[in-house]
Nucleic acid binder design. Structure first.
Lengths: 218, 218
DNA sequence: TTCCTAATGTGATAAAAATCACATAAGACC
DNA sequence: GGTCTTATGTGATTTTTATCACATTAGGAA
């Protein structure tokens, strides 16, 4: 990959020396759906910056129950990998690839150095912390203040926007896992949405009708 | 206040120039319990570093419902004020003083400058992000994965340790607010804890028996 | 002391979620 | 087509939490 190419992925980095350094020391990787980038307890050895595609970030509790937190989109990185690695602490979250994704993996040691040397990197890190904090608060709001029906609707819209489709290929069980509830609850709530003509259900698929998104955005 | 004094509060800052700059540009303030330092929607104009005492940080939803997040203790600062102010965004949280507290308020503009100039400040900011992120995850775990009885017990222990006492002066209503539930729920759960001989209830007071903390720490 | 207010106690009921227990269906594979 | 696995549908029940409706009480103020 050339610095010019990298620049198109990360337009906020215009400093040629920063781009060169990233390319030289970082490693561009193509990841397939299903790839687990980070798991609770494992040590983080690199900071992944998403160039194309996205990475799903989840929290897990002791008994393996999951909770969807947010997506890392193109141009974003994981605040937790920034903090975990600089303190040499194990990961507190799980990161999974859901669609074909390209990242550039920055070694932990380089991150420290970049922070000292490049204002654009420092701003990038600051921006990352800010947006991840915000996403965490959104996730917290959902579990603290919203009922499951609303959480499910938001979840569907999030996935829709994320994958730029009105057709989700997933199972009720998987949704239940990501929302930290049981399959039956999700099945029943989805049925309700279908009755309201907002979605249509098939095996392994949920079609989202056009009126649904309008309804949510209000 | 002298730089020597400031150093005793913030032992990780040994650089005399950093300490001088903080004292010169920052403002030491004594805050009384009840003082609201930050509110959702208001703009943040300074970064408060706690020197003595503590600050309670809470999330609020649209209808004013609250949720306790964590305490900022001596030597700590608010990650959200760091992010909010550098982006000139309104606060997403509420910060309240619960015990007599001394802070040093650093102007937003200075923070940027300090980051460039002092490695110790940079590390401090990084450490802050890290610990606040961790606290957020702990708060998230509670609402996502724990039942109210366990959340209440953890809440009591947290307050106990925070105020270094085995006697909490608070009302059931206040606890309910901070845990995002209703007063009746808390009253009933407290009664259960009393029946188990872990606490004793009075008007405006909860005495925590010695066996309780042992029980929790396991 | 008496009165008043805020705090607490508690039954009854409703609502939301979780769990159990199957029935049914859809699609893969032979 | 038949068989099998996995996904979905759904009733019944339980658990947890929320809400409503009061009774009771503690402690401050007059």
């Amino acid at each position: 990959m050339t610095t010019e190419e990298l620049k198109t992925y990360l337009p906020e980095f215009t400093d040629p020396r920063l781009l060169e350094t990233l390319l030289e020391k970082g490693q561009v990787m193509n990841l397939e759906p299903g790839k687990v980038l980070m798991e609770p307890g494992k040590f983080v050895k690199m900071v992944p910056i998403v160039l194309e595609g996205s990475i799903k970030v989840m929290r897990m509790d002791e008994d393996g129950k999951e909770l969807f937190l947010y997506y890392l989109d193109a141009g974003e990185t994981c605040a937790l990998s920034l903090t975990c690695c600089s303190a040499a602490r194990p990961s507190e979250i799980k990161a999974v690839v859901e669609e074909p994704t390209t990242i550039i993996a920055i070694p932990v040691s380089l991150h420290e150095q970049l922070t000292d040397e490049f204002k654009q990197w420092k701003d990038f890190v600051s921006e990352t912390y800010q947006s991840r904090f915000h996403e965490m608060l959104v996730a917290l709001d959902a579990v603290a203040f919203k009922r499951m029906d609303e959480r499910l609707m938001r979840y569907i819209v999030t996935k829709m926007k994320q994958h730029k489709t009105n057709e989700l290929n997933t199972t009720h069980q998987e949704i239940a896992n990501e929302l930290g509830t049981s399959r039956e609850v999700i099945s029943r709530l989805l049925k309700q949405l279908e009755k309201k003509k907002w979605i249509e259900l098939g095996r392994n698929v949920i079609y989202i009708r056009d009126d649904f998104e309008e309804l949510i955005s209000k």
